[in-house]
Design a protein around this nucleic acid. Structure first.
Lengths: 231, 231
DNA sequence: AGAATCTTGACGGCTTCTTGACGGTGGAAA
DNA sequence: TTTCCACCGTCAAGAAGCCGTCAAGATTCT
């Protein structure tokens, strides 16, 4: 639960409060929306590692909202449905709309947390410590080693973590916000420290090799992939 | 379930048979092991998209086997525990050992199938459709890339967003109001900035290629589609 | 405690994006 | 024909975001 950022969408105040407090106590940062209107806004403005989604909501229901996320916004964050409906048909619908898990109320909070962690672990490819590869770059999370063209690079711990995130998401673009949150949680350094780390990372990973792998997309984020020049 | 290859590890013959038949009927290929000794062999020789793992097995139990998979073999296939044990402690242990889901017997077969599919979908990152296509134009939201005739285009973030909305709605027409609202919410720029962006978009998307995809319907809105000459 | 390493904050400079302004076009209606 | 309207092309100024650099403070190791 360390530093996860979670969006909780649930109209039942009491339950929302309970869940929110538990998750925050476990170290997560939780945003809360009582309806999908607010949820839509939040989801467009921030990155979340996970969404907890009630099915019965005022106005648009959770199923519909989930499908909107997947289809229209193309967001692939893990979604856990939380609902009192325990009929098979309901569950099937939840998975069909793009949900990742379905937990029936009342549930034990630690079970919710365990399912959430399992999903994030899978999403972040942390199930095993397998080597990540992008082009001629290799990162071994177990040994804490990075090589390019077989040559061992020397990286600081933070630079290593940044590279690991970018490599596991490659060739996807990672927003500055997501990077900062995953690195520091709520305690993002005042000044723009990420840049210094990226600077060091480029110096170690790209500069000695000519070919650029670490790219900036202004206003969007960063990505690791073989550069292709757009016209 | 189409063409999934699944390993079922379960010592209870009757249940194993039922599950196996159901899954094969759904189009999966299922290998079966009644104990972890055989499962170890199978897992080293074949690739599986998913494993269904009983907890109580003769000899080594499922938890231990799962950990062995993750730690020693570094296999990251999704694992669903299937067991009669419904205590919180048991579930937590399942997730702790690297399991992805935990389903309590007796369960509905369609639910098992739905959970299995959801996990494979997540593992393969197929949660969202990753590219939008209209004629010879392709947009990849993950990479933040747009190609026409396979050639990479350079777009500003706003131009990219506009194109994404139009392609998502294609071949429908999107009104100016809808576009502006989705781009800026309530804070629509004073002057008519949308036009400048459309101008840039046309310059990048249409101009170099001759054929016009981005059309204006005066008084109605905009759409992306192959031009059709109305009579 | 001392040394080595890492993280952070600060600065100036650069690139890219967004916006607002100007004038032009073409069709429909008066 | 003239006028109006909605949209188009262009572009430059200002805003926003990013970069390289480096040294001081913080942390960790020996």
């Amino acid at each position: 639960m360390e530093n996860l950022s979670i969006l909780l969408v649930e109209d039942h105040r009491q339950l929302a409060q309970t869940v929110l407090e538990y998750l925050e106590q476990q170290g997560a940062t939780v945003d809360y929306a009582g309806n999908t209107r607010l949820a839509r806004e939040l989801v467009q403005e921030h990155h979340y590692d996970l969404m907890l989604l009630d099915v019965m909501l005022p106005g648009e229901d959770g199923y519909s909202f989930c499908r909107y996320l997947r289809k229209d916004l193309a967001l692939d964050m893990p979604v856990i449905f939380m609902t009192a409906r325990d009929q098979l048909e309901d569950k099937l619908q939840g998975f069909d709309r793009g949900g990742d898990d379905y937990i029936v109320k009342p549930f034990a909070l630690p079970e919710l947390a365990a399912r959430a962690s399992a999903l994030v672990r899978r999403q972040r490819r942390e199930v095993t410590a397998n080597t990540l590869k992008v082009a001629d770059l290799e990162l071994d999370p177990g040994r804490q080693e990075v090589r390019r063209q077989g040559q061992l690079l020397k990286l600081s711990p933070t630079a290593f973590r940044i590279l690991r995130i970018l490599m596991r998401e490659s060739p996807r673009v990672v927003s500055r916000e997501q990077l900062e949150h995953e690195l520091w949680g709520d305690l993002v350094p005042d000044s723009d420290a990420l840049r210094s780390h990226l600077y060091n990372l480029r110096k170690a990973v790209d500069k000695p090799f000519g070919q650029t792998l670490l790219n900036t997309l202004p206003g969007v984020g960063f990505s690791i992939q073989s550069q292709e020049i757009a016209e």
